[in-house]
Design a protein around this nucleic acid. Structure first.
Length: 314
DNA sequence: ACAGTATGGAGAT
DNA sequence: TCTCCCTACTGTG
């Protein structure tokens, strides 16, 4: 389910599992052998996300860039092999065991399916499958990619004015502009349909006809909604679920409930919510607000869902 | 077992 | 606007 919330959650999991430790990098599938060799054994500095792009910095100014595309997955889980005493020379501290040794130990971790990239340290294993992008980049190239991306509502440094500038100067429909990663980074098909509905905006309305105050409301809404997606591992847009999620998140932040800080599976707060949207994939069903049938149209190769009555031009 | 679909995006046309 | 890439899950037989 890769929209921006997925990438940001992934960056967090990678940091909790690997940041600050040397990482054995391999390509069990073989299609990333060259890139893996460039990173193997380097210390992972920090993972971060910008929209749907994941950037993982390693020592020596080497960057791993991953884009999950439509079907990519990146699992991060604990393994229980540990480092066996006889796997390193006598007297060598565990922290100095060469990553290659870890690779040998790691080879005991079964590989299921096509794993393009495997990250491994003494406690964690991360397996990447089916990405559209998996590459090692120089800092220059990383800057280039970032320069092409619009502001990301999940980044504190984001400037919604940049997106407004591109929207207000465009004749393209807002439903299309929201999906353009150069206008706004991180929003995909679900968030675009749902957020336009939440503000009753006609998806076919040209960008230049969107009032700045309307754009600001949409942006503010995304700044509220998308962190919930990160925290709960699913896209939440329905008012009742959003309210519940915000409350649950506030309780965790206040410390009045046990915080789940493990990077592993199972401890996630996610999957607690029923999968339910205002419009997404509800073609022909009644609008939850007005009862009109939810409509759909292929826009630039993707299914756009909208309510022709609630989102009529005003 | 197999077909269909999917929350993306690049490149060709 | 079309074609292609790539994996996981769903529904059908």
């Amino acid at each position: 389910m890769p929209e921006g919330h997925t990438t940001h959650a992934l960056a967090g999991r990678l940091n909790r599992a690997f940041a600050g430790s040397p990482v054995a990098v391999s390509s069990p599938q073989g299609r990333f052998d060259d890139g893996a060799a460039l990173l193997d054994g380097l210390t992972l500095t920090e993972a971060s996300a910008w929209g749907k792009h994941l950037f993982v910095e390693f020592e020596g100014e080497r960057w791993l860039n991953v884009h999950l595309g439509l079907i990519g997955r990146f699992s991060v889980r604990r393994h229980h092999l540990g480092l066996q005493p006889d796997a390193r020379p006598a007297g060598m501290p565990e922290s100095q065991v060469p990553p290659r040794t870890q690779v040998l130990l790691g080879s005991q971790i079964p590989v299921e399916g096509q794993v393009r990239l495997r990250l491994l340290n003494d406690a964690w294993v991360g397996d990447l499958r089916g990405p559209t992008v998996c590459a090692v980049l120089t800092p220059d190239k990383v800057d280039q990619i970032r320069a092409r991306l619009g502001p990301d509502p999940l980044r504190p440094d984001a400037d919604p004015g940049l997106a407004l500038h591109r929207i207000s100067g465009s004749a393209r429909p807002i439903g299309e502009l929201l999906m353009d990663q150069g206008v706004l980074a991180g929003v995909g098909n679900v968030y675009r349909c749902e957020v336009l509905f939440r503000h009753r905006v006609d998806p076919f309305r040209p960008g230049r006809e969107i009032r700045p105050v309307t754009w600001q409301a949409i942006w503010d809404d995304l700044v509220t909604l998308m962190p919930l997606g990160v925290a709960f591992g699913q896209i939440l847009t329905m008012d009742d679920q959003v309210a519940d999620a915000m409350q649950a998140l506030a309780e965790v932040t206040d410390g009045s409930a046990a915080a789940h800080t493990e990077a592993g599976t199972g401890a996630r707060l996610g999957d607690r919510f029923e999968r339910r949207f205002y419009l997404y994939k509800r073609t022909g069903e009644p609008c939850r607000v007005c009862g009109a049938r939810v409509r759909t149209r292929l826009v630039a190769g993707r299914n756009l869902f909208w309510c022709g009555r609630c989102q009529r031009r005003r």
